[in-house]
C-alpha cells in the first residue's frame, strides 16, 4: 500500500487502511508523517475523550463499558489504549484488548493498542497522529486510555477535549500523592469499583481537594461513582461528558485546544527536523566537535546557535 491508497482508505473508513496508517504513524517515519500531516485538515469532528488514572483502577474496563454505552446511542467509537514499553528491550505486552472484548466485537468500534515506545507522559509519541487519523476516519467519539498514570503523565491534556480521571476506593493517601498531578487535569472524576469499602471516604477527600482548585473557565468537575464491570453508573459518566463537551463549545475552548494542537505539531516537527539534521550523513564530525566544546566549558546556548547556523547553511532535510 502507498500513502495515497492508505489516505483515501482512511477517509473512507476502511479498517485495513486505518490499521496500516496507524502502524506508519507509530513507526514515526517519513510516510507516517506525511499521512498525519495530510489527515490533520480532516480533523475536528470527533469528540476526544481521555481516560487516565493509576494502574489497576479499571481504566480499560471503563473504556469498554463506555464504548458499549456510546454504541447504544449509535455513536461509532475509536479506541486507543497505551501500555508501557520495556525500558530495557523496547518490547511490550499489550493486554488492553482482554478487558475490551465485548466492545471490540462490535463493528462500530475500532480498537488499537499502542506501546509507549520510550515516551514519557502517559501516551506514545505517535498518540496525536493516531488521534488525528481516527478523527479523520470519521469516528464520532475517540477514547484514549493512557498508561497507568500518577503525577507526571499529563500529556493527555494536550490532545483530549474531556479528561476522565479514574480512581478507586482504598487509594486513601494516594489521593494526596496525585493531587498535584493528574488531579489537576480532570474534567470528570470517576470513582470506579464503588462497591468497595471506603468509597465514601474517597469521594469525600476528592471533593475536598477539588474545592481547593477552580478552573478558570468556570467548570466544576463532577464526581461520578461507577462499577464499570457491571456497567453501573455509566449513564452518569456519559451525561457528565456531554455536559463538559457542551461547556467547551459554549466557551469556545475547542478552538484554543486546536490552536495548541497545531502548535504542538509544529514543535514536534521542529524536533524531528533537528533530529534529522543531526543524524544526516557528514554531520557526525560537527556534532562530536560541538559536544567536546561543551565539555571544555563553552556555553551550550551559543554552541546550539552555532550548530544551527551550520546546519541551515547546508540543506534542510526532507524537502
Amino acid at each position: 500500500m502507498d500513502v495515497n491508497t492508505v489516505y483515501e482508505g482512511i477517509l473512507a473508513g476502511n479498517r485495513r487502511a486505518i490499521a496500516r496508517g496507524l502502524s506508519w504513524i507509530d513507526e514515526g517515519g517519513v510516510r507516517g508523517k506525511e499521512l498525519a500531516h495530510r489527515l490533520f485538515t480532516h480533523m475536528g469532528k470527533a469528540r476526544i475523550i481521555g481516560i487516565t488514572g493509576a494502574p489497576g483502577v479499571g481504566k480499560s474496563t471503563l473504556v469498554n463499558a463506555l464504548a458499549l454505552r456510546l454504541r447504544q446511542r449509535e455513536h461509532t467509537v475509536g479506541i486507543l489504549a497505551v501500555d508501557p514499553s520495556s525500558p530495557f528491550t523496547g518490547g511490550a505486552i499489550l493486554g488492553d484488548r482482554i478487558r475490551m472484548q465485548e466492545s471490540v466485537d462490535d463493528k462500530g468500534v475500532y480498537m488499537r493498542s499502542l506501546a509507549s515506545r520510550g515516551h514519557v507522559g502517559g501516551l506514545s509519541r505517535a498518540a496525536f497522529g493516531a488521534i488525528t487519523l481516527l478523527d479523520a476516519a470519521g469516528f464520532d467519539t475517540i477514547l484514549v486510555e493512557t498508561v497507568g498514570a500518577g503525577q507526571a503523565e499529563v500529556d493527555i491534556m494536550r490532545y483530549a477535549q474531556t479528561i476522565l480521571v479514574v480512581l478507586a476506593p482504598g487509594l486513601g493517601d494516594d489521593i494526596q500523592a496525585i493531587k498535584a498531578g493528574i488531579l489537576e487535569i480532570g474534567n470528570v472524576f470517576v470513582v470506579n469499583k464503588s462497591d468497595r469499602e471506603g468509597v465514601d471516604l474517597t469521594v469525600r477527600s476528592l471533593r475536598g481537594l477539588l474545592s481547593l482548585t477552580s478552573e478558570a473557565s468556570g467548570w466544576t468537575p463532577p464526581i461520578v461513582k461507577t462499577q464499570a464491570d457491571r456497567a453501573m453508573g455509566l449513564d452518569d459518566v456519559v451525561e457528565a461528558v456531554d455536559h463538559h463537551q457542551h461547556h467547551l463549545r459554549q466557551h469556545h475552548v475547542l478552538d484554543d485546544l486546536r490552536y495548541q494542537q497545531a502548535e504542538n505539531i509544529l514543535k514536534q516537527a521542529l524536533e524531528d527536523q533537528l533530529m534529522l539534521m543531526q543524524s544526516a550523513p557528514g554531520q557526525k564530525a560537527l556534532w562530536d566537535e560541538t559536544v567536546k566544546r561543551i565539555l571544555s566549558g563553552n556555553d551550550a546556548g551559543s554552541e546550539a546557535r552555532r550548530i544551527l547556523r551550520e546546519w541551515m547553511g547546508t540543506t534542510v532535510q526532507g524537502d
Binding site: T89, G91, R97, S113
Partner: peptide, 27 residues
Amino acid sequence: RDAGMEVIYTGLHQTPDQIVEAALSED
C-alpha cells in the same frame, strides 16, 4: 517482549473471527 517485540495478548476463548479482527485492527 523480552526480544523487543510488541505483543498483543487477547486472552482465552477467542473465536476465529475475533482473532482475525484483532490481527487486522492491530496490524
